[in-house]
Design a protein around this nucleic acid. Sequence first.
DNA 1: AAGTTGTGCAAGCAAATGCTTGCATTTATA
DNA 2: TATAAATGCAAGCATTTGCTTGCACAACTT
Lengths: 111, 111
Amino acid sequence: MEARRDVFQAIADPTRREIIGMVAGQSLNLNSIAGNFGMSRQAISLHIRILTECGLITVRRQGRERICEARLDQLNEVSAWIEQYRRHWERRLDSLESYLDQLKKQRQDGK
Amino acid sequence: MEARRDVFQAIADPTRREIIGMVAGQSLNLNSIAGNFGMSRQAISLHIRILTECGLITVRRQGRERICEARLDQLNEVSAWIEQYRRHWERRLDSLESYLDQLKKQRQDGK
DNA sequence: AAGTTGTGCAAGCAAATGCTTGCATTTATA
DNA sequence: TATAAATGCAAGCATTTGCTTGCACAACTT
């Protein structure tokens, strides 16, 4: 347990992605986040801990509450990893498109 | 087992990200991929199966070999999810930057 | 035909993950 | 001060994950 915590793994879980979505709009305390899920408060608490450990959210205490705030710049790591391949997959789509264009043209000519 | 296979989970594993990196450049057969890792061929085979199940690579057989080819357009799903938050985190960075600028200016003025 | 190469399938296993429930602790409120 | 609210901590548990090893099999090579 308590293994490597990286952003890739953090966003792999759909519940955590949902939490990020909630907190991105407005900072929320733990209980109001947990209220929107059909699972125990502790489960959500653990998800939030994971998100905290990899820097995607920060938690500040305010009275007896823990306010969770999004700190999404870490997503850049994932984004950068993906972007290095964008050229690759868009080229594929381009060549598919030109192939389809060609096919269409041939059909029109043939007719 | 054999749960939901989504792209988010597929790229959560560093070995699978490495495999994607290798196959993006050139199509490779299973054994030559496995040769670059310090783990058994079967382990790699399983990773490739997962990548296949979520559509990130396709495998075509050619004689007795299985040629793995990248099909990375599925990464768009992750990219799109992240991009919806880019404005959010870049705004944060902007305000941090302007804050630092302000701080720097103050220090210069003070001196 | 016999051997080598590339791969799949299946059983087994330690560790990680995602969840629960119960109890303790701190902070506000009546 | 007693009570409620917001949360942490810890033990327990089923499932999933990532890996291994052993065996089978089809496809090339000699």
